[in-house]
């Protein structure tokens, strides 16, 4: 069922379908590695990290997951070619979940640091991708979605979507500092039966002009994400940044993600780097 649905969707967007897709002679597999770090240390679920944010706060981090989509690689001619993602429990219909937590009360033991797929045989030397779930998949019935879009801890139902990024600290107390990012400012319509548009997509586009998947890794750095944020305070009602436009705690994090926030225009993201 799950595979069928995904395949049909792929056919619909003109990617490989049916027999055509196993013409493997003309395609090559690609594996893109992702890593989660906190400054110069690897992210280990449940570890404490010091000197974070504007006020050198210590936090025990317990969750680190994000979705990516629109994974493209740059060929020798400089054109961006879509990577057709494999279908597995971490990837469906062009969306992959990178999952670095294995200790959270809101997670599970399984980990994933790879995006796998295929593209036409050739030379590629650049990578781009978007963190988030595409609008068309973000606002459909979550209760029938295949893995990894069926994880209720990544549901973002008040906006009818998914949490694109989830990094938690704390065990649900006042001093928690959680970062949940998804689309906001969404409006729906009973006749359409769901969300029709969101003022803030909050999808992060990342591009590395030079990236060789056989040697490079995409690194997501929590320290870079929270740079300048006062993690020992919660100005707004929510514990940390819940991406609400009025949640002023989000300002520095959005800036570090290259996203516009309030009156502040979009900048350059520094959460992801290629190493």
């Amino acid at each position: 069922m799950k595979r069928l649905g995904a395949l049909m969707a792929l056919c619909a967007v003109g990617l490989g379908c049916g027999d055509d897709s196993n013409s493997s002679s003309t395609r090559q597999q690609v594996e893109i590695s992702y890593a989660a770090v906190v400054g110069d240390q690897p992210f280990v679920c449940g570890n404490r990290y010091d000197n974070l944010g504007a006020n050198d706060t210590s936090l025990v981090l317990s969750d680190f997951r994000f979705y990516v989509q629109n994974v493209d690689m740059k060929n020798a001619a400089g054109a961006w070619i879509p990577v057709e993602l494999d279908e597995n429990e971490f990837q469906t219909t062009g969306v992959a979940l990178l999952d670095f937590e294995d200790c959270a009360s809101m997670g599970n033991e399984d980990l994933n640091g790879l995006v796998t797929g295929s593209l036409p045989a050739g030379e590629y030397d650049g990578l781009r991708f978007t963190m988030g779930v595409p609008f068309e998949m973000n606002h459909v019935n979550h209760s029938t979605a295949p893995s990894p879009l069926n994880l209720t801890s990544l549901f973002w139902n008040w906006q009818g979507g998914y949490k694109f990024l989830r990094i938690d600290s704390g065990q649900f107390s006042e001093t928690d500092w959680r970062m949940h990012l998804g689309s906001t400012g969404c409006v729906g319509d009973a006749m359409a039966g769901g969300v029709t548009e969101c003022a803030n997509g909050n999808r992060v586009t990342v591009e590395f002009a030079s990236f060789d998947p056989s040697v490079n890794t995409v690194v997501a750095d929590y320290e870079a994400l929270v740079e300048g944020a006062a993690l020992d305070q919660n100005e707004a009602a929510d514990a940390g940044c819940m991406a609400k436009p009025a949640d002023t705690d989000c300002g520095p994090l959005f800036a570090n993600l290259g996203l516009p926030f309030g009156g502040t225009p979009a900048g350059t993201q520094q959460f992801f780097s290629a190493e």
């Binding site: 019935n141 979550h142 209760s143 209720t152 549901f155 139902n157 008040w158 906006q159 009818g160 969404c186 409006v187 729906g188 319509d189 009973a190 359409a192 039966g193 769901g194 969300v195």
Partner: peptide, 10 residues
């Protein structure tokens, strides 16, 4: 954003 009872229950 929330217009369907099926979704609201989530």
């Amino acid at each position: 954003a929330v217009v369907r009872l099926e979704e609201q229950a989530l």
